[in-house]
Structures are given as C-alpha cells and as structure tokens.
C-alpha cells in the first residue's frame, strides 16, 4: 500500500504518532519480562529484590550460571536434565518427521482402497486433545513398564496428525513425472522415498521439525506423569522442582531460566523466517 507522503494532513500525522506510541508500548510490555530475566540472571539476589529494580548491576555476577548448573546440592543434575530434554526432543522430532513424511507421501501419491478413510481417521485424532487421554496413556505406559524411561517419554509423541497433514499437503504438488521416471529406471519405492522425496521436502520438513522440537522442549504435563527419578527429569520438570525447593536465590533461578531458553532462542533468531511464516500455515489446522 502506498500512501502519499510528505503532505499528510494533521489527522493522519496524529494517527501516525498514536500508532507508533501504541506499538512501542506493546513492545515494551512484551520485551520487559525477557529483559528482566536476562539482567536478573547476572545479579546477586539482593540486587534483584532492591526497590526499584536496578536493571543493571555494577558487576556481572557470573556465579549464578555456575551455581545454576551445579544445582542446590552440587550434583550437576541440571546438565543431565538438559541432555534428557535434548534426547527426547530430538528423538520425537526425528520419528515425527520420518513417520509423517512416509504417511504423507503414501496418502498424497498412492491410490489404494480406504485411503480417504485412513486420512480422515488420522485427521480425527486432532480432535482428541492430549489432556483428555493422558490418564489412559499413563496406565498403558506404566503397564508396559516404560515409566521413568526415555521410551516412555517418547512413545506417545512418535508422530502427530498435524505433521501428516502438512507433509501430505506439501507432497501432493510433488511432480509425478519425477517419481515415474525413477520407477522406470528400476528404483524401488523405499529408495524413491529416501533419495528423491525426502531430500526435496526441505521446507516442509524444517517447519515440522521446528514445531515438533519446540512443543517437546516445552512439554511439562507428560513428563510430570511418567518421570519419577531426578536422573530422568527434563528441563521443565527440573525447573518445577527447583522452584518448589529453593525460593531463596532469584539470580540463580533466572540463570537457569535463561539457559533453558537458549536453544529455542537460537532456533528462533537463526530461523525466524520459518517461525513467522509457518505460524499462518500452522494455524489453519491446529489449535
């Protein structure tokens, strides 16, 4: 949209000022808590609770990070829990990408009896929120003896309907000639999938991978049910326990929070295009 510039009437100019003020205020509201987290993570607890909040301290209190990693009992269990979060989030991302692209490919490019029924069944699972099936899932996983294990943490999330939908929509437009040419050359179906379909699905896979990784990194409810030991805790669980235990040192709390957010922020700032353009796409099918 191009509006004439330079000779805008007073009303327009006032509106302009109002809009900028509003946007700046919104940004201040949104960014202040983040700024608080990062600045507080470098302060001793006494400074954080000063009135008014000082925002910047004279010297950088790096100890918060060291103490955060060490934990209140000096066991460095937080490091183990970060690794657990990585193991779970990366495994779920890998299986989700693989299973979703396999079934998305099957649904997009193969004619078979019952295809529409299968697709509808898979889409119907979007209507079953995790919160309503967590109790039966918990009992299944316990019965299988998988509670308090990586398998138990990963199993209910091997794939999801949104992923299947995304990959199917993406692969429907994949050129049939390329697939048929490979078939005529004698390539087997698994090879076509692995060597032609997967390498050419980059954008869709990246989108799905980011969304899956993020939702697992954030997952609290399921680990809360299945994990018992400190060794198997993921980051959200560690923070939950940490919050309940040490109400004392706010600086360490914020250092832990900053460290827990780092992977997502790195992902966000390096791949912001995927985040920002995918939200629109994502939103059309999933809540």
């Amino acid at each position: 949209m191009n509006y004439a510039k330079g000779k805008a009437p007073i009303g327009e100019r006032l509106a302009d000022i109002f809009i900028w003020l509003f946007l700046i205020l919104a940004c201040v509201f949104v960014v202040t808590p983040l700024l608080f987290m990062v600045t507080a993570s470098f302060m001793p607890a006494i400074d954080i609770m000063k009135l008014p909040y000082p925002w910047f301290s004279d010297h950088i209190h790096w100890q918060n990070y060291w103490n955060g990693l060490k934990g209140p009992d000096g066991s460095f269990i937080f490091v183990r829990n970060i690794l657990n979060s990585l193991v779970v989030a990366l495994s779920v991302t890998a299986t989700t990408v693989l299973l979703s692209s396999m079934s998305g490919y099957g649904l997009a490019k193969f004619q078979f009896k019952g295809r529409n029924l299968v697709f509808m069944l898979i889409m119907a699972t979007m209507m079953i929120p995790f919160e309503t099936i967590m109790i039966p899932l918990y009992m299944v996983v316990t019965k299988m003896g998988l509670h308090d294990s990586y398998a138990g943490l990963i199993l209910p999330f091997l794939t999801n309907a949104f992923g299947v939908f995304l990959m199917r929509q993406f692969l429907i437009t994949f050129p049939d000639e390329v697939l048929d040419a490979a078939r005529i050359d004698g390539a087997s179906e698994p090879r076509i999938f692995a060597n032609i379909v997967l390498p050419n699905s980059g954008p869709a896979i990246a989108t799905l991978a980011i969304l899956t990784f993020r939702s697992q990194w954030d997952n609290l409810l399921w680990p809360l049910l299945v994990v018992q030991s400190d060794e198997m805790k993921t980051i959200p669980l560690y923070i939950t326990k940490f919050m309940a235990e040490t109400h004392s040192d706010e600086g360490i709390m914020m250092a832990v929070a900053t460290m827990a957010s780092l992977p997502m922020f790195i992902l966000f700032f390096t791949m912001s295009n995927y985040f920002i353009s995918t939200e629109g796409l994502h939103s059309t099918v999933k809540g």
């Binding site: 960014v31 957010s261 920002i276």
Partner: peptide
C-alpha cells in the same frame, strides 16, 4: 522487527514464562 519482538515470548517454554512472572 516489530513482529519478531512481539513474537519472542512465544519462543520461551511455559515453565520459564511462569518462573519469570512469579518474580515479577
């Protein structure tokens, strides 16, 4: 820039968000 600034809290996990706001 405005989009990214407004979006940034969504990149945090909800546990971290709760932790920050408990102190606020």
């Amino acid at each position: 820039f405005l989009q990214m600034a407004l979006y940034s809290p969504a990149a945090l996990s909800s546990v971290v968000a709760a932790l920050i706001w408990l102190l606020i």
